[in-house]
């Protein structure tokens, strides 16, 4: 009996491991956003240089869509860019871009070079709208439902896995 006591530390440790393993399966990317299920904040952004139309919260209604926060300065945005282009090419879901804290003209130059995956783009040079959305960094992507409510928030670049396993299923679900 006394001998068994010496195995107590490893028994407790086994419990800790199980619990860490469960903890690991939880996705910290799914930060609770206070905005989830709330209507997207009201905004009306001007177009970026060289574009005719800006982006306002009115544009979001009627169809499931994505809002993508990006900037020409954002290296991680290059990582997700091919995925966004693919979405645009196959016409899966409209992506609205918010060009965040970009110097005038830089956003347009970047889009010209890399390709434009966005249906409409708003220029948020001052970062005010990004604050209303609770953006913590770029890239960040919001899924908006038909009524213009925010239903999901993803932080970080959209890789093909993220698109297939997280974002696309949510979009499908919301279309029902």
């Amino acid at each position: 009996m006394k001998r068994l006591g010496f195995y107590l530390p490893i028994a407790i440790f086994a419990g800790v491991v199980i619990y860490l393993a469960v903890g690991l399966t939880l996705d910290p990317h799914k930060l609770p956003s206070t905005l989830i299920d709330k209507p997207a904040p009201e905004f009306d952004l001007p177009p970026i240089e060289g574009f005719e139309q800006g982006l306002s919260s009115q544009d979001l209604k009627g169809e499931v869509s994505l809002i993508n926060i990006w900037g020409s300065w954002c290296v991680s945005c290059i990582i997700e860019h091919p995925v966004l282009m693919e979405i645009k090419k196959n016409n899966i879901v409209p992506i609205y871009g918010i060009d965040w804290k970009d110097p005038p003209g830089e956003g347009a130059v970047w889009l010209k070079k890399e390709g434009n995956p966005y249906t409409l783009i708003g220029d948020d040079a001052a970062g005010r709208v990004a604050i209303d959305f609770g953006v913590t960094g770029a890239p960040e992507t919001f899924i908006i439902d038909k009524e213009g409510r925010i239903r999901y928030k993803y932080i970080g670049p959209i890789t093909p896995e993220v698109w297939n396993e997280i974002i696309f299923p949510v979009v499908e679900e919301l279309r029902k």
């Binding site: 440790f13 086994a14 491991v17 393993a21 690991l24 990317h29």
Partner: peptide, 28 residues
Amino acid sequence: VDPTRGVFLLVLLTLAIGGALALFGYRA
């Protein structure tokens, strides 16, 4: 954040600490 790192580390952790504690249980 990168989940593969987490899993790799957890396995490492389990082997290192678990091994030492098992040795402790056996020899102490």
